[in-house]
Design a binder for these strands. Structure first.
Lengths: 212, 212
DNA sequence: GTCTATATTGGGATAGAC
DNA sequence: GTCTATCCCAATATAGAC
């Protein structure tokens, strides 16, 4: 049975770990993952370098921990929500819903999504990691698109490619757009992307009847 | 007036410079810009480190030189080609033409475009460089979109944002797609992107009359 | 201009006291 | 577990002979 001192030791360890993760998040969203040094994190967290390695083997492992935390948070919010394969992405509301969730999650976890993006791009291009990562991240979208194809809908091309292309646009915009999350800007982004991806630059075709 | 030995000296210097640029191009497309060390370049070029600094102040300056070479090559091929603002990107042929040129140029200069992409993403996110770069690279598209708006066409959102979103998709796909340039794959990519951006996932609207 | 050899530095990682 | 102090190396950059 743990003594009081042992327990308190554990608590402090957890505090340190949390402080490191928190400092990392703050730094990542500002200077980015690549330019943030381990010493920057420890300094911002008010801990020592030695202490860092007691908790993480390196910066990449810390990023994995942040990712795990993010996924836990998402799972918690999504608990019990069914997500059947047969969503119709050519339905505006359903498409908007998907893009909205994706965008919101990315924005709310910007330090992490941004770090993952940098890590992906910093890797050697020849490894094909970028395609693999994008493919994984857009798995759900791909399934929905494949479902559409099965039902006889004519997509502009290969579902896998289209899904990756959509993902590429989203993650890069998430990186490039600086406006703070949760505001009016997010709504506008989601609306624009929805309409762009639904009907393209040409817009919803105005039926001859409408013009009369 | 330069002597024979002086001229030959200049020639050898130019050769070295060219060898360094060439080696860099080869390495960039494989391991990427960020992971390529200056010593890698000099080794691949069969020159010494000291010699490198005689030609470039650093890796970033070498990249600028590569960029300049690329722009020269483009200018040369585009010489005399008018590019009026009043292109209609809701016309399939014109849209496809723009996307095709953009994609082909990126692919043919993949070492450079890839390096520029990595450099853009590696920068601190807070500086807004990503948005600025994407905005610049899509200037032509933006102008065409603004022209459409002026003519009363309803775009899915702000022209600047749409142009950047299109650029984000293109440059990230250029990074992620590994297939060699110039092949059948390029044609398919261009076709898919054209149709996706023209009419979206829903596809060209089938008029009620067509279904009868 | 190009080379070899060396200086320099930033930052990741560990040793050992507490 | 946390700290301070130190080691270590990779990679940049320079010095100086040729």
């Amino acid at each position: 049975m743990p003594q009081a001192s042992t327990a308190s030791r554990k608590v402090r360890a957890a505090q340190t770990r949390a402080a490191l993760l928190d400092a990392a998040r703050r730094l990542f969203s500002d200077r980015g993952y690549l330019n943030t040094k381990i010493t920057d994190i420890t300094a911002a967290a008010g801990r020592s370098t030695g202490s860092f390695y007691e908790h993480f083997a390196g910066k990449d492992e810390l990023l994995q921990a942040l990712l795990a935390e993010m996924e836990d948070a998402i799972d918690e919010r999504m608990v019990g929500l069914e997500h059947p394969r047969d969503h119709d992405l050519t339905d505006r509301d359903q498409l908007r819903d998907h893009l909205g969730v994706a965008w919101t999650v990315m924005r709310q976890n910007r330090p992490v999504t941004l770090a993952l993006f940098q890590a992906m791009v910093a890797d050697d291009p020849g490894t094909g990691r970028a395609w693999r990562d994008l493919r994984e991240q857009t798995e759900t979208i791909r399934e929905h698109l494949e479902y559409l194809v099965e039902r006889g809908h004519q997509l502009p091309g290969d579902p896998e490619f289209i899904a990756v292309a959509m993902g590429a646009m989203l993650v890069t915009l998430n990186y490039a757009v600086l406006t703070p999350p949760g505001g009016e800007d997010d709504r506008r982004v989601i609306d624009t992307l929805t309409d762009l991806l639904l009907h393209g630059l040409a817009g919803p075709a105005s039926h001859p009847a409408d013009e009369a």
